[in-house]
């Protein structure tokens, strides 16, 4: 935790020093006040990397698929790759056991690969608050591709599709929740489906079910930002390394299609806007409610309202009114 001067940090980062890259991500995670200025200086160097999100139910094999994709793209020598892998924080202790690396060892030691584990901390939606910033740091580090693995909560994770160019939904046969999860919305957000563990029975059936559902909901597919993109359903086995070429090619094809339709740049602008909105939200939240019970400018008022038995909606409306009243007086 020895801090050198920030300028030195950026200089070391520009030289490609991995410790500097790692430290920038740490500063983002810690919401270190120095990060804001550093980040704004890096932002100009971001936007190049293809950002690929991987989501899906717990244990579907997201990390194993990432490992195989790393191997595929690195063996083809297609530039640097960054990985951000998010695992859940314990809501009780605030701690986390980050185990995604266990499955991502095949390119460890490759100087063109950088993997960072991240705890979700107090964020929801399958990502951590600093996930986007970590992806940007890796983008500025020179990654051609940045892979973002979400927390496998088996629920809808729209967040990842908002922050990534291409969203891969990883499913596996035999998980009862797979189809459930698709109903809940994974169908709409996926650009590519990977049916993993195809070395086990059931892959064919799951793929067929999925194709059928996609056919039925082709209206959804048509309404998506990218015209005419039909999400491919690919059967893979991360364990046997089978189907990985096709998966990697589908991901790359989606990027080319985004570029062809001019959506690559458009998505970047929308993403930056979303980032700014999130920063505003976080700043306001910290200011008004701080981090604990009764904290922040409105924390005590909130507690008093609760003590007085005020209804949640009425209380929220009153707190909002107080905020806008205060803003007008400024």
């Amino acid at each position: 935790m020895v801090e050198r001067a920030e300028g030195d940090l950026l200089e070391r980062f520009a030289r490609g020093e991995r410790t500097a890259c790692a430290r920038l991500i740490t500063l983002a995670e810690a919401r270190d006040p120095r990060f804001a200025a550093l980040y704004d200086r890096l932002a100009a160097r971001t936007g190049h990397a293809h950002r690929v999100g991987l989501t899906g139910p717990p244990g579907a094999g997201k990390s194993s698929v990432v490992d195989q994709l790393l191997r595929h793209w690195r063996e083809a020598d297609l530039g640097k790759i960054g990985v951000v892998a998010v695992d859940p924080s314990s809501p009780f202790s605030g701690g986390a056991l980050l185990g995604d690396r266990v499955r991502m060892s095949s390119r460890l030691g490759d100087p063109q690969v950088f993997i960072r584990s991240m705890a979700s901390r107090d964020a929801h939606g399958g990502l951590a608050h600093a996930s986007v910033e970590a992806c940007d740091v890796l983008d500025a580090w020179g990654a051609e591709r940045v892979l973002l693995e979400t927390v496998g909560v088996g629920q809808v994770e729209y967040e990842v599709s908002r922050v990534c160019d291409t969203t891969v939904v990883v499913l596996h046969p035999g998980s009862g929740d797979s189809v459930q999860a698709m109903k809940a919305g994974l169908l709409e957000l996926a650009h590519v489906f990977a049916i993993n563990k195809d070395d086990q029975p059931g892959g064919e059936r799951l793929a067929a079910d999925l194709e059928e559902m996609l056919e039925l909901r082709s209206d959804l597919v048509r309404e998506r930002a990218l015209l005419g993109w039909k999400p491919p359903v690919l059967r893979v086995s991360a364990r046997e390394g089978r189907g990985i070429d096709a998966l990697a090619n589908a991901i790359d094809a989606h990027r080319r299609e985004l570029e062809r339709q001019g959506a690559f740049a458009e998505v970047r602008r929308e993403r930056r806007a979303a980032h700014v909105r999130a920063l505003v939200e976080a700043t306001l939240h910290a200011r008004f409610f701080g981090s604990g019970r009764g904290a922040g400018e409105l924390g005590e008022e909130l507690e008093r309202g609760l003590d007085a038995g005020e209804g949640p909606y009425a209380l929220a409306a009153r707190l909002c009114a107080r905020i806008s009243g205060e803003e007008q007086q400024r």
Binding site: S93, A96, L97, L98, G99, R101, V102, S105, S117
Partner: peptide
Amino acid sequence: GFEVIYTG
């Protein structure tokens, strides 16, 4: 409350 990275 620690964040633990386990590498296997």
